[in-house]
Every structure is written in C-alpha cells, then in structure tokens.
Write a protein that binds this DNA or RNA. Structure first.
Lengths: 146, 146
DNA sequence: ATGTATGCAAAACATTTGCACCTGG
DNA sequence: CCAGGTGCAAATGTTTTGCATACAT
C-alpha cells in the first residue's frame, strides 16, 4: 500500500489523488502548475479531469502536503512539502527556479513582524533575475524546468 | 499644468492617464487593484473603461511609475513608485498592508543571487500574518486598507 | 450502503485584444 | 492632420462550481 501520506493527511485514498501525488513526487521540475500536472496525467493515459486536479491540489494545500506559489506571471505553481522551508530564485528568462535558505533573513523576518505587531503565519521571499546558464538566455519562457 | 510626470515618462498626457494617476496618488489604500481604480473612476463619474485602466497601468509599470504586486490571492495590485524600494507585510485577516525596509535583508539577497549566478532584476519579500489591530480580527477580507 | 470524490460542461474571474472612433500635440 | 489612445465587446487563460455518476470504506 502507498496511500499512507494521504490517509495521514485525513484524505480518502483515491486513484486521482495517488496519481497526482506521484506526479508531484516524480521527476522533472519541482514546481508544477495545475496544467503541467494535467498534461502529465494525460501522458500517463490517466483519465482525470482538470477540475479534479485543481480540487485535489487545493485539498493537498489545506492538508499541508503542498505549497502554492504565485510567481510574477499570476499563474499558480505547486510544490511538494518535503524537507524544510526555503525561499526562491526565479529566472525571468528561462523560468528556472532555485531554492535557498538564509538563516539571517529568517531571523530578521521574525523581528520585523514582531516590530509591526504582526503574528507571522507565512512569508515568501522571491528573487527575480536571470541565471546565466548556458541553456538559458536563448530560450523563451516555454521550457520551464526545476 | 500637471502632466509632467507623464510627459517625463514618455507618455502622452491624456485624461484617462491623468485621472488614474490622480487616483493612485489619492487617499485610501496605497495598493489598489485595477478593479479598485475602475470603481474609483466610476465614483468620480469618469467614463473610462476597465480595459483602459489595465492598459494604462501596464504602461505605468513599464515606465516605472508604478509597481505591480501579486499577493497570495493571485489578483494584481498596483502601487505608486515614490520614495525608495520596500517590502511588505500583509495581514491575512483584514488585508492591511504595511511596508518595511531592512538593509541586512537587502544585502543578503544580493549575496544569495550572486552565489547562485543570478543577475538580480527584482525581488519581492512578503510576510503574511495577522496584525492584531483593534479594527482587524472581526472583519473579513472585504475591507482592504493601507 | 452512503457519503464523498470525480468528470464533464458551464460559470466565474481577472486580464487582454480587435476594431472603429476620438483626441492630443 | 495623424499617430497613438480609448471604449466597447468579444476573446483568453486560469480557476471554480453544479450536478449526475462512480467509488472507497
């Protein structure tokens, strides 16, 4: 059996949820849009509707299994919650996304929230720029990758 | 005359652009959505279409007059570019938005981008939480304010 | 069985675009 | 006068929802 994560999250173990979880765990980029996942399902010959993908992702988010990000293009991408918190570097040329953690930044965030009387729930720190990878500059935003 | 900012930005001075700029400068919240601005125009009995609001905001952004933000709800909000760069604290209860600058965080961002071989263009650091204002907890996300 | 999850199609949004008309310089 | 700006309506792209059916427990 495989649906432990799901059951532990209080979700009934169904085929669509298993498949979507599998895709999120699977290779390729860590940050996938609903559409990406839907396409991956089609490629695997799974008969799962786009609406279900959105519903499942929303449940996963509520259950804390995934995190939803809104990068500058307005389209949401989802990332499996494994390991610890981290922030993001996004390449505006090729869409590459890298992750980082900086303890100093984390600490200062806490202090700033406190200074403003905010009870901090979450935060997002995104750096936009251009990675100068050999495979980057040339290509448009079409080919997104980890 | 009043359209100096516009002309300086290389934009023809038209009534819609002046009115929209005026609303952005005007009172209320500093961060306004296209819809907010459109409603404000209607309230001022200006006959300006929503499409124009979007077009003008996009031009303003290109001209560096405003900054577009995507907070967690996916809807874009626009903020007039006056003063220096800053980051945001967003209250998830009442929608209040506060601004802050932390020099240490700014510096570490530069370093992190460099370490990852990124040429930094921009960044966004948003802390989500709840401000514990007397006028906050009770109300829903409907009433947004500065 | 039975309440929940799914698929499909349609709706709801935010945003963009095509096109004929209007306006600023 | 004329390029560029605008209004309106229609198109787009993403995400949500209604409802009848299928499924997990």
């Amino acid at each position: 059996m495989e649906g432990k994560d799901l059951r532990k999250a209080g979700l009934k173990v169904t085929l669509p949820r298993l498949k979507i979880l599998e895709i999120l765990e699977g290779g390729g980029m860590r940050h996938k849009s609903a559409e990406d996942i839907y396409k991956a399902l089609l490629d695997s010959n799974e008969d799962i509707g786009l609406a279900t993908v959105y519903r499942v992702l929303t449940q996963f988010e509520a259950a804390g299994l995934v995190t939803r990000h809104h990068f500058e293009n307005g389209m949401a991408v989802f990332e499996l919650n494994e390991g610890e918190h981290h922030d993001h570097l996004v390449c505006m040329e090729c869409g590459r996304i890298e992750e980082f953690v900086d303890q100093e930044i984390e600490e200062r965030q806490l202090r700033i929230a406190a200074e403003h009387g905010f009870e901090i729930h979450d935060h997002s720190m995104i750096i936009y720029g251009r990675c100068n990878r050999p495979d980057c500059i040339s290509r448009a935003t079409s080919a997104r990758r980890t």
